[in-house]
């Protein structure tokens, strides 16, 4: 099985988005590893050509946004084949996607919509994970979503659902720390308890992304956190990240920034900060205190 350590990738990497790809190919900046969305490349031969050149210099992870393992109407097998063809050329260090759905009967909603957490969804996800992993010929990590609402008929919490999913399928998880902070705020749960409830052995990757704060229209004076990936990682997310690292260890971590994309140097600086948080979080107690 291919893992980060097999490929020599570790520490904090950055999401490689189209506005930066020519710069990366030309300047080969110091980045530990890069993550791409295959959907940005499948219909773009020029970007794919640049990506394959990039791959010669960096470990690359593939993070799908369109496989939609939570769709009740099934996996888009044509899309699965296209993703497989790309990853066969890339030989990525990891492939991942979301605990969510985004397609319905051949329509793509360009968003990640939440699922009810019950036995029906668990059976569906387990079957689709098998189909995706068989179709890709690789392990497929599942990422916890950012939530604004849930379903009253859910019979388990998200953490319980993810734990059961890993038990039944053997899959590993992509722990999006910022999503946990966002969902915890919006849905009223303790994000630290959420981290503590995840199966530590199953965590293969961590994501960190920025969110925006918007008024919660239904509750005067209250805020809603929206997972926009359009700004810097917020301090509460860094704090939660430190807790996650102390619990899971030095897991490869990705800085995500998908909207209002800044200069590449800004992303790399966020990645460097993530590495510092890891070093501080794993340092022996006296050193950790000194660092503070």
């Amino acid at each position: 099985m291919t893992t980060f350590s097999d490929k020599g990738a570790a520490g904090a990497g950055v999401g490689l988005r189209l506005p930066h790809i020519q710069e990366v190919v030309t300047t080969l900046p110091h980045a530990r590893w890069l993550e791409i969305h295959p959907e940005n490349f499948l219909a773009n031969p020029h970007a794919t050509e640049l990506l394959l050149e990039t791959r010669r210099h960096y470990p690359v992870s593939v993070h799908t946004v369109g496989l939609s393992i939570g769709s009740a109407t099934g996996i888009d097998r044509n899309h699965l084949r296209r993703v497989r063809a790309l990853i066969d050329r890339l030989d990525p260090c990891m492939v991942s996607g979301h605990l969510a759905w985004s397609t319905h009967e051949g329509e793509f909603l360009n968003d990640l919509v939440p699922l009810p957490y019950d036995e029906e969804t668990l059976r569906l996800l387990s079957a689709h994970l098998g189909e995706v992993q068989d179709g890709l010929g690789r392990e497929y990590l599942v990422e916890n979503p950012a939530s604004y609402f849930g379903f009253g008929n859910s019979t388990m919490t998200e953490v319980e659902f993810l734990g059961e999913l890993t038990e039944r399928t053997g899959c590993r998880l992509l722990c999006d720390v910022s999503n946990i902070h966002v969902s915890g705020h919006n849905m009223g749960f303790d994000p630290y308890a959420y981290i503590d409830g995840l199966p530590a052995h199953a965590i293969g990757e961590i994501h960190l992304g920025g969110f925006t704060i918007e008024p919660d229209g239904a509750t005067p004076g209250a805020d809603l956190l929206v997972d926009t990936h359009s700004t810097f990682i917020a301090e509460p997310s860094w704090d939660l990240y430190g807790h996650a690292i102390r619990r899971f260890g030095a897991i490869p971590t990705l800085i995500e920034w998908d909207k209002d994309i800044p200069a590449l140097a800004t992303l790399l600086a966020q990645a460097a900060h993530a590495d510092q948080v890891v070093a501080r979080s794993l340092a022996p107690e006296p050193a950790r205190a000194a660092a503070c």
Binding site: L109, N110, D111, V113, P116, S147, Y148, F149, G150, F151, G152, N153, N186, M187, D216, G217, A218, T219, A222, L224, V226
Partner: peptide, 23 residues
């Protein structure tokens, strides 16, 4: 009626509607 989250989950569903349209 199936949704939970905040005082009015339907308003939160509109976040997805807005993202779909705006993007």
């Amino acid at each position: 009626p199936l949704l939970v989250g905040g005082a009015n989950p339907a308003e939160r569903l509109a976040i997805h509607r807005h993202h779909y349209e705006a993007s």
